[in-house]
Write a protein that binds this DNA or RNA. Structure first.
Lengths: 119, 119
DNA sequence: CATATCGTCAACCATCCGGTTGAATATGGC
DNA sequence: GCCATATTCAACCGGATGGTTGACGATATG
């Protein structure tokens, strides 16, 4: 499964992994803290985090004995662009898209509070 | 796997299924014709089509002995909206988005030739 | 140093997935 | 009625996936 679209979509296909991404939307977190809300073992969460990391959806950095997990939303772009191909329109200018969205939303900037949404 | 996001993302995780969707982007097709370009059995393609139909990404209508497959791009919206939540921005107004894209592309309209893109 | 915490590894298990084959079930045409 | 075509069904197979548990290495802390 080398195709990045394979990796991203199959990473997103699991509700636990989507919930993890939603958690990381609020802040960077240590593996143990990511695992805390879930009713499964730390090892299971660790595996989920590996899947997300291989898909490029998160990065992990070890500082001391703690491994910090950081969301990488840019990894969604390839998949998003692929999906956009199924609308009425053709290619998408993502930079223009962001300008459009920023303008439409009054440009809350990168520190805007994250939206909450279901997994 | 009742969650529609589960179904859509895992349907999209397979390259054969993405290729099928790309085929159907050009036109509605019978099952046999969908299967023709692929180096696998008709039964395998039939299963893939079932997965896509259960995810809502296509609909199938039987006329005579032929079952026609039709792309349903709207099924991508839920997933697309979910993904947009991970950008710098919050909620996305998809109708405004489409107006934006139509304007930016010179409004080729619904009969615009489909973009070709890799699976 | 001793001990607790963080995280992964390895082995195992049940289930799902993507493919095959061969038989079965329509439906259409002569 | 008979044969060809279109599609699915059922059984099977190997490999991936998602979970468990227990042991382990590495890092903090008293």
């Amino acid at each position: 499964m080398s195709n990045p679209l394979d990796q991203v979509f199959s990473a997103l296909a699991d509700p636990t992994r989507r919930a993890i991404l939603a958690l990381l939307l609020e802040d960077d977190m240590a593996v143990t803290d990511v695992a805390e809300p879930f009713a499964m073992s730390l090892a299971a969460i660790s595996k989920h985090l590996s899947v997300l990391a291989e898909a490029g959806l998160i990065t992990q950095e070890k500082r001391g004995r703690v491994k910090w997990c950081k969301l990488e939303p840019d990894a969604l772009r390839t998949a998003s662009v692929w999906m956009q191909g199924f609308g009425q329109f053709e290619a998408v200018d993502l930079d223009g898209l962001e300008r459009f969205l920023a303008a439409e939303l009054g440009d809350p900037g990168p520190d805007a509070p994250p939206a909450s949404f279901s997994v």
